[in-house]
Design a protein around this nucleic acid. Structure first.
Length: 169
DNA sequence: CCCTGATTCGC
DNA sequence: GCGAATCAGG
């Protein structure tokens, strides 16, 4: 129920730039959809501060005509771009290497590191070949299963391995 | 997959 | 008026 004081806090929080879900959480008992709906009904949809989203048109409407089915004529397009990519001589290697260029396992960059990406460093950070493992990490772990074993070895085992230099990657 | 707001429409 | 479902996008 939208009591007056709840509407007030809604207005306030929305004006402060909080997201609909955050406001919903704070108010309690409502979903972000409810908040958004209310915001619209109050006519204060546009954020005064910040955000400059490029809202696009949409919604075909429920009673839209069947219309033409999208046709499988798209395959050629995909093939074309694939071909283009293939014949591309390929970029001259960047002279300077930025942090964002540091590759993770499979060609991704450091920008792609997430909680679920193995952050085990491989190679010398100064070398061009340096990269991160990038495999999917174990839940809650910064490393994949393989590297987690290396990282979290029991002290005794690690000592042995260190001496045998098995620990190096 | 997480999130954002926007819109529609049955209630 | 309300808000779930859905849409479009980051």
């Amino acid at each position: 129920m939208w009591t007056e004081d709840r509407v007030e806090t809604l207005k306030k929080l929305w004006a402060e730039g909080l997201s609909a879900s955050q406001i919903a959480k704070q108010l309690g008992g409502v979903t972000r959809n409810a908040v958004i709906g209310k915001v619209h009904r109050l006519g204060l949809s546009g954020r005064a501060t910040s955000n400059r989203p490029s809202r696009a048109r949409q919604q075909p409407a429920a009673a839209a005509a069947p219309a033409a089915r999208p046709q499988p004529a798209q395959a050629s397009e995909a093939r074309e771009s694939a071909a283009l990519a293939k014949e591309k001589p390929l970029p001259a290697p960047a002279p300077q290497r930025r942090l964002t260029d540091v590759a993770i396992g499979d060609g991704a960059t450091v920008l792609s590191l997430t909680e679920h990406t193995c952050k085990w460093p491989i190679g010398d950070p100064g070398e061009e070949s340096f990269h991160f493992c990038g495999d999917r990490s174990a839940p809650g772990m910064p490393y994949c299963a393989e590297h987690a074993r290396l990282a979290y070895q029991p002290v005794q085992a690690r000592k042995r391995n260190d001496r045998r230099r098995d620990f190096a990657v």
